[in-house]
Design a protein around this nucleic acid. Structure first.
Length: 382
DNA sequence: TCTGGGGTCCTAGGACCC
DNA sequence: TCTGGGGTCCTAGGACCC
């Protein structure tokens, strides 16, 4: 190809305040109000005989739980994702609290993805509320395609989304956040200095809180400052590989392809207890939770047609220290009894000297259940 | 009464094999 | 007996993302 690689057009589509927006389709009377999604499952609104709705307010909530999503009205009051609900109640006591309803979100997720796939089938799933779309093979202008996709999503779900179309995933991801909600942003490499460089480094997908702090100590706050940083300084701080990636990202360079069919690497279940549990004093309760987690993971594997060889557990102590142990079996399994047996072996290798707040069970090293040789054959001694 | 649940990827050391 | 690398697998922890 004399012209080199064909120019790519990658879209990133992000549903606007997804969980909250789905909840508002269930409770349209709450439109325009500060609404927060999260917490335990028991905050379900109830309706009086005379038709009046009653909702839980943030100030009424007691116990553990964080905000998963909030409407833009609630965000304006300081209710942001991952914030503890009782903490958020200090600045937004009257905001309405709704419990998460994943079944509904999954249904809407399937609807919007199917609507996009009708127009552009090369989709990479990035979770329940966002996707990348490869538009390189399409003829229409990015503006026309973007509008068409947004209209299709609205038609199928009644919900709005924000889209950016750019030469690669990195820029598309940054771009979809530039004009939220209901945005359509078009970016080219020529836009990088004007539209990307003024942004904080944390806007780059892959630069989290730790890296942001470390860059800050080097005097680097914006993506533009990162682009101008001395490579030796970055390499000394972060190592060669990460430094190279940082520099490429700051210049908007990213060659990653759309992955339309990523394989599952691990399946896990975990739960944070309502109160911290004592390894001995609450033994029966812990044991029951442990069994349930093993059964849930086994059920998830069976549903996905997967079996796995490496069984792992995760514990979090009351001081938030987290430890993991894992153990690889001879043969992959999805059997809850075998998973539990291996998980118990892992558990025995941990000093249980504090109260626990979380327990988790994980299966990795996965393969398709159909690939497994018949038991009798696998058990042969030669 | 801080801090959910489901994931992916990377690093690093040790075992083990050639 | 000392001294090698290279490759792969296993395990533990941590950063990061939605």
């Amino acid at each position: 190809m004399l012209d080199g690689a064909p120019r790519r057009r990658i879209a990133h589509l992000d549903m606007d305040a997804f969980y909250a927006s789905v909840e508002l389709t269930k409770y349209p009377q709450l439109r325009g109000q500060p609404v927060v999604i999260g917490g335990r499952r028991d905050a379900v609104p109830r309706q009086d005989a005379d038709g009046t709705w009653h909702y839980m307010r943030l100030r009424d909530y007691v116990g553990r739980g964080v905000i998963t999503t909030a409407t833009y009205e609630a965000r304006a009051l300081g209710a942001r994702s991952a914030l503890g609900i009782m903490k958020a109640a200090q600045t937004a006591p009257d905001a309405i609290l709704l419990p998460v309803d994943f079944e509904s979100y999954r249904r809407y997720s399937r609807l919007f993805k199917a609507a996009v796939a009708n127009i552009a089938p090369a989709i990479e799933d990035r979770g329940i509320d966002e996707i990348y779309i490869d538009l390189s093979a399409h003829e229409d202008s990015s503006d026309v395609l973007g509008r068409r996709i947004k209209a299709a999503v609205r038609n199928a779900t009644g919900l709005s989304c924000s889209i950016a179309i750019a030469p690669n995933k990195l820029l598309a991801k940054i771009g979809s956040d530039l004009d939220k909600p209901d945005g359509l942003t078009l970016l080219s490499m020529a836009d990088v200095p004007t539209r990307i460089w003024p942004l904080a480094v944390s806007k780059i997908n892959g630069i989290g809180p730790k890296a942001t702090t470390r860059l800050g100590t080097l005097g680097i706050q914006t993506i533009g400052e990162l682009a101008e940083a001395a490579p030796e300084v970055l390499q000394r701080e972060f190592g060669l590989g990460y430094a190279r990636w940082l520099i490429d990202a700051a210049h908007g360079r990213d060659e990653r392809a759309i992955d339309t069919d990523p394989e599952t690497k691990s399946v896990s279940r975990e739960t944070t207890f309502e109160r911290d549990l004592h390894p001995q004093g609450d033994r029966a309760e812990l044991s029951a939770i442990f069994d349930t987690l093993c059964q849930q993971v086994a059920g998830d594997l069976a549903r996905k047609g997967l079996i796995g060889r490496t069984i792992g557990i995760k514990l979090r102590f009351d001081d938030f220290r987290t430890v993991t142990r894992d153990h690889s079996l001879e043969l992959p399994t999805a059997d809850p009894v075998l998973i539990r047996r291996a998980a118990i072996q892992c558990l025995r290798r941990i000093d249980l000297d504090r109260r626990l707040r979380l327990l988790g069970v994980r299966v990795a090293n996965l393969q398709s259940g159909a690939d497994r040789p018949p038991i009798a054959q696998a058990a042969l001694p030669f």
